[in-house]
Amino acid sequence: MHLGMVIDLKRCVGCQACTIACKSENGTPPEVLFTKVVEQVAGEYPIIKKKFIPVLCNHCQDAPCEKACPTGATSRREDGIVMVDHDKCIGCRACYVACPYKNRIFIKKGALKTGYFGRKLTPFEQVKYPKWQEGVVSKCTFCVERVDQGLEPSCVQTCPADARIFGDLSDPESKVSRLIRQRGGYQPLSENNTEPSVYYLE
């Protein structure tokens, strides 16, 4: 099995529902976004075209972040999901400069003490923050705890435009494989030979 995602840029409306779904599923601290939607504006007023590009860790099959990691904290599961073991991470950020997509995020010292509202953690933050550590690097896991239960990642389930499709890339009959075949799905920055598991459709 090789889990992956297809992102249909024609469908994305830039609502950032996936960004929020990820935040609420993972309860990540301030400034830590595992997924987000970046926008690109072309043309000049009044003829303007806007494109929204959802981004997340591409779970590369030849991941430079994994090779760069001196501790083995970064590893790849059999199903292709690239994980970070926070207990092994020393916070050297070699993976941060190795990831061509800038999808690694360093959890700064103090980030788990103040939360979003400064003085005190909210009840939600108190529940979610124990799974994070300060001084280590983190990233999207394709919502591994949901995937292990047979569910889709939170961003996929939430997307109101059906712009994110999740599935098994190694199965030629899966929806993701068919979409890639039929619509010419491409991997981001494929020239880096990182073999991303995320494909985009234009």
């Binding site: 994994e66 760069a68 001196p70 501790t71 991470c89 020393i90 916070g91 050297c92 070699a94």
Partner: peptide, 25 residues
């Protein structure tokens, strides 16, 4: 300087574990 930079300096020894692929190690 490296120790000061590490997010978790107390685990610095773990940085020795992957010399096969990592230039940091």
């Amino acid at each position: 300087a490296h120790l000061l930079y590490l997010g978790r300096p107390e685990r610095f020894w773990r940085g020795l574990t992957r010399p096969r692929t990592s230039w940091v190690a």
